[in-house]
Amino acid sequence: MTYDLAEKLVNGDRLALAKAITLVENRAHGHEDILEECFRNRKPAVRIGLTGAPGSGKSTLVNAMIKLLRAEGKTIGVVAVDPTSPFTGGALLGDRVRITTSESDEGVFIRSMASRGAVGGIAEATDDVAVLFEASGKEYVLIETVGVGQAEVDVAASADTTVLVLTPEAGDSVQTLKAGLMEVADVFAINKSDRPGAERMALDIRSMLEMRASEKGWTPPIICMSAIRGEKVDELIDEIAKHREHLASCTSAADRERTYLVVKLKRAVERMLKNDLWRGPDGSALEKIADDIADGTTTPYAAARQILDRYRARSGQGE
């Protein structure tokens, strides 16, 4: 059944793609088979991460980019990630509202995802969704996240090119932007730049960039634009293309692919290991170990070593 799904997906079946995303998102039974099949059939897409504060206009920008890319005949997959409420486990995913593709356009596929906090691995999940999009023939994959937590930064950072979307309202706070967020940006987009403060903000960013040595020979461009009016969106897309050319000039495509695959491999191994580990008897014994740590019988470090030793022994026996 999972093979069928992968085959249909590769042949462009939208329903199959939607179902495969669900399986991957839930890490449900059979999802690894699908990923494997899709991985074999994928053609690497242009992966663009978009991140920024709530209200910065990311979805509007995605919408504007879709319009331009579609005009060139490109096919696009979008995954928009919004946070899950840590209290209720629910989420309100509203990014579709701003993305107004024509209703019969089969060249665009949009999927909303909740970060499902504690489950973790959202960066890996979106990355896997990108694989599914690639297998279904999408030439561009846009990954949109709210740049508020480390997980979201990771999501954006795993794309080829990361666009940080800012608004002039945040003008005074460029200094206080979340550490790590400035660093992931390959391109800065100052949206709603018709509002006062855009020029100043561009200057602020420019001087901050000058303070740090430009790594890898790439100085992130700063584009003052307006997503809602579609102004300078083409320029943004050009800069993204330039960034890709830059990547291509300093490393070979094969090397980049290799780096990307290693990250993927590591993530997959870590997740599988984790699942395996906690699915075993040590998962259920956790309460008991916690009690032991709490009453001082053991320490977290000793307990961790003990669990790992037992796991190795268990795996050894399995061989």
């Binding site: 209200g55 509007t60 309100l92 509203g94 509202v97 701003r98 107004t100 809602i228 009016r229």
Partner: peptide, 10 residues
């Protein structure tokens, strides 16, 4: 003039 699209607020 273009068209207006709102950001829904809950």
């Amino acid at each position: 003039f273009g068209e207006y699209i709102e950001t829904p607020i809950f």
